[in-house]
């Protein structure tokens, strides 16, 4: 029983971080129809940048983390401005593959600047583990969950009440109509990229405070894809719900299936879920089923 609640708690908390990263994806997809396949690499580069700020330069946390957020905003702006903006109106294939180019570039950049393949962030959260019922959970997990929830709430409020948030939802709904109202749509694209990068940065920091910085962080970004596929590409709610589900499936499956199958079954579960969802319900749990016309 202790084992079960242990797996469940870690699963749900990690899943919330996945959901956070996935929200960034959904944001870009909804506002500009671009699939950001560089998500994993973005998570990786922001984690390494955090390492650079906190360990290599030696800034205290309260200086380092805001710098990382600024850096994320800058990266988001640059990526949108340099690669996506010139391709507005191009076929979807070009829009997807250009983010692959970005992914390739970032991966090269990371191995150029930080050739170490593994590193650890300094402790951001208190060390002693917390007992919840019979389960023992280290504090990183809980903090990750708390920060994710805070960001969910902030984002929800932003989309509901802030002018930019309302504009973003409007753009997602009907780009042409919004443009006709005199709202600069390109600016919305660039804002959504900046937001998504900040979410990826926060997700990266949380994940790397849990498991250290490795190339596995690219896999974290890829797990966010299984979250968006399961939740539905164009649904914020879907991402928030599907994130913990993926985390839970991953941890429970990893915990209980490993003796039955090959070891390391944990890392493949999100991808198996992708394939299953594709076969059964390709638009996901909450996604909009689109009817196409010629």
């Amino acid at each position: 029983m202790a084992e079960l609640s242990q797996f469940a708690i870690t699963g749900i908390t990690v899943g919330m971080v996945y959901a956070l990263i996935a929200l960034g994806f959904v944001l870009i997809w909804k506002s500009s129809g671009v699939a950001n396949l560089a998500l994993g690499q973005l998570v990786l580069v922001f984690s390494w940048f955090t390492y650079g700020m906190l360990v290599q330069v030696g800034f205290p946390v309260w200086v380092g983390i805001p710098l990382v957020i600024l850096f994320a905003l800058g990266v988001g702006w640059l990526v949108e401005r340099l690669t996506l903006r010139p391709l507005i109106g191009q076929p979807i294939l070009a829009l997807i593959t250009v983010t692959l180019g970005v992914a390739f570039f970032i991966e090269g950049l990371v191995s150029l600047v930080w050739p170490k393949s593994v590193a650890a962030l300094p402790r951001l959260f208190p060390e002693e583990p917390i007992h919840i019922g019979a389960a023992v959970v280290s504090q990183e997990y809980l903090w990750a969950a708390v920060i994710s929830v805070i960001l969910f709430v902030l984002l929800t409020l932003f989309f509901k009440y802030h002018r930019m948030g309302i504009i973003m939802r409007a753009v997602a709904d009907d780009q042409m109509a919004v443009q006709a109202c005199g709202i600069p749509v390109a600016k919305v694209f660039s804002r959504s990229w900046m937001f998504a990068c900040v979410l990826a940065a926060v997700g990266g920091i949380l994940m790397s405070s849990i498991g250290g910085i490795t190339f596995g962080l690219v896999g974290t970004g890829l797990r966010a894809f299984s979250v968006v596929i399961l939740g539905g590409l164009d649904s914020f709610l879907g991402a928030i719900v599907a994130g913990p589900i993926i985390g839970l499936a991953e941890n429970l499956g990893g915990g209980y299936l490993t003796p039955l199958t090959w070891p390391g079954v944990r890392e493949i579960i999100p991808f198996v879920i992708i394939v299953i969802v594709m076969f059964i319900r390709p638009h996901g749990l909450f996604g909009e089923r689109r009817i196409e016309r010629i």
Binding site: L82, A94, V98, G101, V102, A103, F105, E107, G108, P115
Partner: peptide
């Protein structure tokens, strides 16, 4: 030069090549 120059420069060049060709 940073130590990862040899490992990193290749992917960077290809990433830029893909982006430039697409644009």
């Amino acid at each position: 030069l940073p130590a990862g120059f040899t490992a990193g420069i290749g992917p960077m060049v290809f990433g830029i090549a893909i982006i430039l060709f697409l644009i």
